[in-house]
Simulated assay, not measured.
Amino acid sequence: MSTTFRDPMRVLVIVASTRPGRLGTAIADWFVRVTKADAEHGGIAVDVAHLAELDLPLLDEPEHPSEGAYVHEHTRRWSQRVAAADAFVMITPEYNYGMPGSLKNALDFLYHEWAWKPVAFVSYGNTSAGTRSVQMTKQVVTTLRMMPIGATVALRIADSTSDGQVVESMQIEETARGVLAELTRVADAMHPLRADAESVGGPIDGLTVDLARPGDLAEVLVLQRCCWVEEALANDTLDLAPLHETLDELRESSKQWRLWCVRRHGRLIAAVRARAHGATWMIGRLMVAPDYVGKGIGSWLLEYAEQMAPAEATQFALFTGQRSERNIGLYERAGYALTSAESMPPHSVYLTKQRALVG
């Protein structure tokens, strides 16, 4: 397992088949179970995506995926899930010497979200144990700038499964653990490439956005205290929670909030966090380094945080200082309005914005 990757590494296991009675679900469960101890030891968070449950239609976005201008909520949900992953394991059967159409379609929906990330395969089938599906898929993923690793699990259904389950086999389980180990090493090696290459556009060149990892939190705390000095001056008080938050408190809060870091040429220059509270998407601690203020990054990052809201969110909400005129102006220009709230942090105002319906 990797020791240098900024924990936790996120591995997305994709179950390709959508056929009723599919064997892929049992194989994914088996893979997660036999690699669980290694994943926990290596600081790896494993997520499982069933294409049958995602219910993606045939590619229906009007713009090319490389534009990232998604108009459909199902695409945005899929984009968020893939973008959050550092590596992939594809559980795929073989249909007529090839990959399932559902997998090809899911790959085609996105572009930048796949790039510079490794992918492993667990295939299954009859004569070839699904390996011809893997060979076909490799042509597609390499075009998306993904890196297929060498280690694979190939299950011949007649030999490796019984009653819809993978049979116990020390040899096959060891192979699965080897796949995860190699995937981790390659993801670790590719992370700097991805960090440099995943420019997200924005108001100035060279910006990248990524979910914060534990190794980022100390740097976030320094930026936070730097940014809230101006808030303290504007509101004539030091009684502001961001100024007094400890690293341990930030670590604890990061379990409840999704925290995004914005970097430019490796330097942390902005951050924002958000979480769901019922049907409200709460946005907090939007911060921009003082020497980058006035370049449009705050407005851009606010919009980015809004786009990360789950489908069920119907409104956005946030707090800011009651005398923070510049912040209030920024939020009002973005469509937020001052709103009364039952409970309010000291020296704060509450603003909300209704989410626009799409489609």
Rank of each mutant, 00 (worst) to 15 (best):
V89W: 01
R185A: 14
R33W: 05
A311I: 08
R263Y: 09
A129S: 15
L193M: 13
G21F: 06
C226A: 11
N96K: 14
A313V: 04
A241G: 05
R10S: 10
S162I: 02
R251T: 11
M146I: 08
I14M: 07
S324Y: 06
S17I: 04
W30A: 01
W30V: 03
L144N: 04
C226K: 14
L180I: 07
T161H: 03
M190T: 01
P346K: 13
V15W: 00
D108H: 10
I204Y: 06
C226F: 00
Q322W: 03
E303A: 15
E325R: 09
S169M: 11
E252C: 01
L302V: 04
W78F: 11
Y304R: 12
Y97F: 14
T131S: 12
W257E: 07
R273H: 08
D7V: 07
K353A: 06
G42A: 15
G294V: 08
G21P: 05
V11A: 08
A305G: 06
R285P: 09
K36N: 13
D159M: 07
A313W: 11
W78E: 03
A276S: 15
Q322L: 05
Y304F: 15
Q315D: 12
T208D: 08
T352A: 08
V167S: 10
R76C: 02
S343D: 12
L103D: 02
E40T: 15
A187I: 03
A232Y: 02
L330D: 11
V48N: 04
L250I: 02
R225T: 03
M146N: 05
D86C: 05
P65K: 01
R177C: 12
V166G: 02
T142I: 12
T352E: 13
E245R: 11
D188W: 01
M344E: 08
A309Y: 00
D7T: 08
Q256V: 12
H244I: 07
G206L: 06
A279E: 15
T3F: 03
V141S: 04
E182S: 12
I27N: 00
T339Q: 07
G178R: 02
W114F: 11
L259P: 02
L243W: 02
P8Y: 04
A52Q: 10
W257I: 03
R326C: 01
V71T: 15
G329F: 01
T25D: 14
V358C: 09
A181T: 15
E94N: 10
R156F: 09
T152G: 07
V200N: 00
R77V: 11
R185F: 11
N126Q: 13
L107Y: 00
L247H: 11
A305T: 07
V358I: 12
D7F: 04
R251Q: 13
A195S: 14
G294W: 08
L351V: 01
W260T: 10
A305E: 07
P242W: 08
